[in-house]
Write a protein that binds this DNA or RNA. Structure first.
Lengths: 231, 231
DNA sequence: TTCAATATATGATATACATCAGTTTTTGAG
DNA sequence: CTCAAAAACTGATGTATATCATATATTGAA
């Protein structure tokens, strides 16, 4: 009896955001006239948990961490990269405030869509609403997978997950310069920065990865995958 | 600087399911003609992760655990009780299979709504669709809170959460007969049955609860709440 | 009613990680 | 370029909680 299903603790959406294709030209014009584009530098807060949610966001370009914070601990719910929505849970009119915070990992361009306009389109265009439902349900499936990993996989597997995810979904290459600190990697894989460092060292010793400061290169993708699955 | 926000690792939805109020009489008739009611005994599987999702479910009466399973470990995503929807993530036509399993904790009555009919209503009634979006986003907020707790609170706090949740949201009383085993409690709070037993014993010694087999009585609600918050 | 299977309970042991305390390296502002 | 602050790294130590082994109690089917 092996494992039935593999989860990954990396949550960069791979589900395409197709809702805007459902809008007519007039609706698109209406949306555009209710949208502003905002640039954020690396490390800036894009939305803050508990503050009024006046808009739904779309990541035009960049990479963002979405996280919960109770003042002591931080839990990264997901990463969001170019072409995905952010802040959808604010659609619910009873959640007038953002349910999570978001911070840019890189310089990022965000389109802020007026939430009243967005809701109006939902209420008048059911194809659009259906498409948003699809995004929400895909999101929740992904978060659940991450939830599973962070509670049941151990550190090696979680770290392998994140490295593979960065390679596959974010940088789309086996070699990349990592814009994240060891602390960031620790938050993503839910472990201390010291543990990240020790495990990366182990991965390097085992010839799974090559690493020099910010530069990462995956040497043995398959074995890393296996660690991600069994660890 | 104390904590900004409190999460609970118990996920019994407290968000009312209002979507059916948005349907006209004819739509309601259409829905009813596409709905069947099924009874499950305690411990029966209601839906199985990976199997074809032909219906959306509504818990008419009972208590259900929703969980992920990789063949080795199990993660309880949430409990669902009377009056709530189950299986909404199957709305997405690209998820033709259930993304999680569900099992009845108690004898349970489930209304199975044909998924094609459900999707049809979503596509024609945007108020209905909007209301389903509200449910989905409330669900994800709740799961996120549970996610936070299971990854950042320690065992005492998690167990206190579950006890309070059962009292407040499920049985709505300070004293109740628990239909769950120590193993079930362990799954809910993400710890081993042995640890549950030890901690319950500690709670008993500390006069936080009274306990005799299946019978539970909360003696010091406030202190239990404090443990849930700090632990 | 009996007896096996299951759930509950308890103590001993193991371990994966966090935490702490310190050193070295890198970074970036003036 | 300089230097302080931040990040990266390393080793020692601590601890929460799982695991294992075993005993007792409860349950439910024949």
């Amino acid at each position: 009896m092996g494992k039935d299903k593999q989860y990954s603790s990396c949550t960069v959406s791979s589900y395409p955001c197709r809702c805007f294709e459902k809008l007519s030209n007039e609706e698109m014009d209406f949306l555009n006239s209710n949208t502003v584009s905002v640039k954020y530098k690396k490390g800036e807060i894009i939305c803050k948990q508990g503050s009024y949610a006046s808009h739904i966001m779309f990541i035009e370009l960049g990479l963002v961490k979405v996280f919960l914070d109770d003042g002591i601990n931080c839990l990264v719910l997901k990463m969001i990269s170019t072409g995905n929505m952010l802040g959808l849970s604010a659609i619910n009119e009873e959640h007038t405030t953002f349910q999570y915070s978001a911070m840019s990992y890189l310089d990022t361009v965000v389109n802020q869509i007026n939430i009243v306009a967005f809701r109006k389109l939902l209420n008048t265009n059911s194809e659009f609403a259906k498409s948003v439902i699809d995004i929400l349900s895909a999101n929740s499936v992904q978060i659940n997978g991450r939830f599973f990993c962070l509670t049941h996989k151990q550190s090696y597997g979680r770290l392998a997950d994140i490295i593979l995810c960065l390679a596959d979904r974010v940088f789309k290459a086996k070699e990349f310069d990592l814009p994240l600190s060891r602390k960031d990697l620790g938050e993503l894989s839910s472990m201390s920065p010291e543990t990240v460092i020790r495990m990366l060292k182990k991965f390097k010793e085992d010839k799974l990865i090559e690493m020099d400061g910010k530069n990462f290169k995956i040497l043995d993708y398959d074995r890393l995958k296996r660690i991600s699955e069994t660890g």
